[in-house]
Each structure stands twice: as structure tokens, then as C-alpha cells.
Amino acid sequence: MLPLSLVSKEQLNILTYDSFTSEWGPGPSIQKSFEEICDCQVNWTTADSSGALLSRVKLTDNKEGFDIILGIDDSLMSEAKDTNLFSPHALSSSDLAKLNIDWDNETFVPFDYGYFSFIYNSSKLDNPPKSFDELTNRNDIRIIIMDPRTSTPGLGLAKWIYQLKGEQSKDFWKSLQDQIVITAKSWSDGYGLFLEGEGDAVLSYTTSPAYHAIAETDENYKAMLFQDGHAEQIEVLGMLKSAPNKKLAQKFISFAISKGFQDHIPLGNWMYPVIDGLEGSSDFYKYAPMPISLDRVYASKKDKDLWIEYWSSSID
């Protein structure tokens, strides 16, 4: 690492997952907008999944000197808080009131959210199921899911099923088992295999069709909308206690819920932005309509173990 004295500008070190900072992700444009107003330099470091982000700071005790972690999701929040590595975000309740979702966490700030759903190709599958029960009755539909232990959408599905089925989750998983053709290790692998023609539907987000429609002008991909509701995923960012540049980090957190950041979320990260009234997002909402939402759950480690247990006990 270069000695800081060699660089005149202040540095903001952000740890995030790799697709966020890719050339096609929102990272580069967000960096540009922020650097315009902060007179600083943003440095990105990446880990290969959002789960690995928390692992990394836990393992190193943030000796690498990150200011911000961006991209852990609601399922990791309580675990992250327990590490005692994060400091409160210091946003006022009026700041948080501007968000289009209810939010009262003191440590983490949401920057986008989405709903889990199954994506299908409407040119190959008509009459998609309208509820989970219908899905399990349609034995012709082969689905690709992700391993809840290694992938956040995978865990999301386990949560979703638990929210709907509760104690009966295990039986439900069993009835779904015949239709699961692939349990991928990560979302990108599962989704890639789906596009290659494996499976009729893939676990993803209700926002995925917007990517195909807008970036590829392919309107065939659609999300199954279930009447019994969809589980939610919220992606958050947080400031580290040992952040070398707390002031700048604080500034970035405020920036994250402003237009300069949020403008790049719908067509960059392909998730719902946390504020309304963004220009040019009408197309996005057209292809990614809001589904019926289930109640939000802040998962503890125990909850997650339970969800995973229901899943794993059904596969032996």
C-alpha cells in the first residue's frame, strides 16, 4: 500500500461484493458522483460474495482499514452487529423518513432492496403458477435454486418458505424436492445455467426481468408473482468502528440515500432504490412491478439455522 502522505486527497476505503464495482455495476458511476462532491478518492475492495464481506472483516478485525462495508444484507445484520465492529450511522430519523421503506436500525443504512421470486421464460412457459402451492403441484416446472448455506438468495428462499409455511416447512421442502433440478452454489451460477436452458424457472429477484427488458430488449423473461407474498431482501451499508476516515465515511452514508447514489441503483444494480422520484426509473418499475410483500424479518443466527435445518432435513 502506498504511504498516505504520497497522496494528497483523502481516501475512502469501501469493501463490497465484486459485481457492485464491475464496469457494468453501479460502482464506477457512484464513485464519480461522490468524488465530485467530496474531494476525495474512493478505493473499492471486493470479496466474491456478500457473505464473504462480513467474514473478511471478522477475520482480520478490519486490520485492512476499511471505512465502509457495502452490500451485506438484512439476514447478516444482527450477526454483523454482534461483532462489535460497526459504529452507528448517526443519520437522523428525519433522514430515514425520506426512505420509501420503514427503517429504524441504528447501525446499518439500506441502499437498495428486492423481493425473491422465480424467473421464467414466458416464450417457453405459459400460465405460470400464482402461488407456492401451485408451483409444487406443477410437476412439469423444473426449478433451479441456490444453496442457503452459500448464497443469500438461497437463504432468502428458506426464509420465504418459513414465513409462509412455518412448522410445515420441512414437508413443503419435501414436496418441492422433485422439481429442484439444480442447487447452485451461488446466484450467478444458478442464473447462468437457467439462461443456458437448464430448468424452467430460477430463484432470483422480481427485478431481474427489468435487466433483460432494458439492457437486452428481451421482454420474455418474467417473474412469477405469488399471491401469498414475497420475502424481502434489503442490502445495507455500515461504517466500521475502526474506520480510518470516519468523517468521510459518515458523508458517504448520507450520500448513499441521496439521489447521486440512488440514481444508479435501478439500472446498475437492478434492485429497487430506497428513495422515490428518480428520473428514468419508470421503465424499471414497468418491467419490475412491486410484488405483494411479506413482513420484514430481522433474522438472528438461530433463525437462519432453523431455516437451513428445514431445508437440509428434506434432502437426505
Binding site: 457494468w24 451461488s186 446466484w187 433483460h212
Partner: peptide, 26 residues
């Protein structure tokens, strides 16, 4: 396990494309 954006290899680029929906480019 632990990449940093300061260096990207070709397989890393491919996996990045892959997780950004850019399957054809990958």
C-alpha cells in the same frame, strides 16, 4: 478467496461478467 479490485485476472473478469447478468460477454 479474497480478491481485491486492485488486481483483476481474466477468470475474475469472467466471473464478474457472470454475476452482472453479462453471460454473453462472459
Amino acid at each position: 478467496l479474497f480478491n481485491s479490485s486492485s488486481f483483476k485476472t481474466v477468470p475474475y473478469l469472467i466471473s464478474q461478467l457472470y454475476s452482472s447478468y453479462r453471460y454473453n460477454d462472459a
